[in-house]
C-alpha cells in the first residue's frame, strides 16, 4: 500500500484533518546549540564523579554476568587478556581496529605466545569473506567500546570504520576494553550524547548502536537460565584505569 494511502487511513482513524500542524514535542525541538549545552553538562558531571561511576559500572556489570577486571595499567590489561587466552587454550584471537589498541600492545604479547591475532577490519588487507571466516572460527574476540553505562553495566559499540558487528558476537568469549573517559552514568546520558552526535553529523547516527549488558542467555526451556545461546558464552570487561 502506498504511504499516502496508509497515512490517510491513520488520519481517518484519528479523525485528524490533512495538513494538521506537526506535533509539539520537546525532545525533538532541542536544536544543536541546546543539545550541545546538555552534552557539556553530562560530560562535566561524568568527569566530576568518574571514580564513583567506574566503581558502579564494575558492580552492576558483575551483577549482569560480566567478569570484570579493573586493570591499573595498560600493561596489566594486556597481561590479563594474555592469561585469559592461555587459560582458554585460544589459538586464534580477533580484535577490532579501535584506537584503544594503539595504547594497548596486545598483538605482540599474544603473538609472542604463539596465538594468531587477526584484525577484523578492511584495513588489515584481508578480503571480506576471509575476515568473516576468521571471526567465525576465533576463540576470543577483543574489542574497544564507545561508551560504558554504569546504570545498566553495559558497553556500547557504535558503527565506525575498524569496528565490526561480528567481532564481539561470534567468538565464544568477548573481551570489552573500557577506558575511563567512556564511562557515563545513565541510559539518558547515552541517548542524549548520541543525539548530539546525530545533530553534528547531519542526521546520520551511523548504521547501528549495540548495547551489550552481559553474556548471551536464555531461559526458554523450563525457565532455566543458560548462558551462551547464540552469542558469547562468556564476557569479560577490562577497565583500563590509567
Amino acid at each position: 500500500m502506498k504511504q499516502e494511502e496508509f497515512l490517510k487511513r491513520v488520519r481517518d482513524a484519528l479523525g485528524r484533518p490533512e495538513g494538521a500542524p506537526p506535533p509539539d514535542y520537546l525532545p525533538l525541538k532541542l536544536r544543536r546549540e541546546d543539545q550541545r549545552q546538555r552534552a557539556v553538562t553530562i560530560e562535566a558531571r561524568a568527569e566530576a564523579k568518574r571514580a564513583q561511576l567506574i566503581a558502579r559500572l564494575a558492580d552492576v556489570a558483575a551483577l549482569q554476568g560480566w567478569k570484570v577486571y579493573r586493570a591499573p595499567s595498560a600493561q596489566e590489561a594486556v597481561g590479563y587478556i594474555l592469561a585469559l587466552a592461555i587459560e582458554k587454550g585460544a589459538r586464534s584471537v580477533v580484535r577490532s581496529a579501535h584506537p584503544v589498541f594503539l595504547r594497548l600492545p596486545l598483538d605482540a604479547a599474544l603473538r609472542g605466545h604463539g596465538v594468531r591475532v587477526s584484525v577484523d577490519a578492511a584495513s588489515s588487507g584481508a578480503s571480506r569473506e576471509q575476515l568473516r571466516v576468521t571471526v567465525a572460527q576465533a576463540d576470543l574476540g577483543v574489542t574497544g567500546v564507545d561508551y560504558a553505562v554504569a546504570e545498566t553495566g553495559s558497553v556500547v559499540l557504535a558503527a565506525r570504520p575498524g569496528v565490526s558487528r561480528r567481532a564481539p558476537l561470534l567468538p565464544p568469549v568477548h573481551v570489552a576494553i573500557v577506558e575511563p573517559h567512556q564511562v557515563y552514568e545513565s541510559l539518558d546520558d547515552l541517548f542524549a550524547l548520541r543525539r548530539m552526535a546525530l545533530l553534528e553529523r547531519e542526521g546520520d547516527m551511523g548504521s547501528y548502536l549495540s548495547l551489550i549488558s552481559g553474556p548471551s542467555r536464555t531461559a526458554d526451556i523450563e525457565q532455566t537460565l543458560v548462558v551462551g545461546v547464540h552469542g558469547p558464552v562468556e564476557v569479560r570487561m577490562v577497565i583500563v584505569e590509567t
Partner: peptide, 24 residues
C-alpha cells in the same frame, strides 16, 4: 518482562551498512 535491569542486548539499527562499515 524478565525482571532484568537490562537485557543482554539492546540493538539499534539505523539503515543498512554504510560504505565505511566493516560488515552488516
Amino acid at each position: 518482562a524478565t525482571g532484568q535491569r537490562a537485557t543482554s542486548y539492546f540493538t539499534l539499527v539505523s539503515g543498512p551498512r554504510r560504505a565505511a562499515d566493516e560488515d552488516g
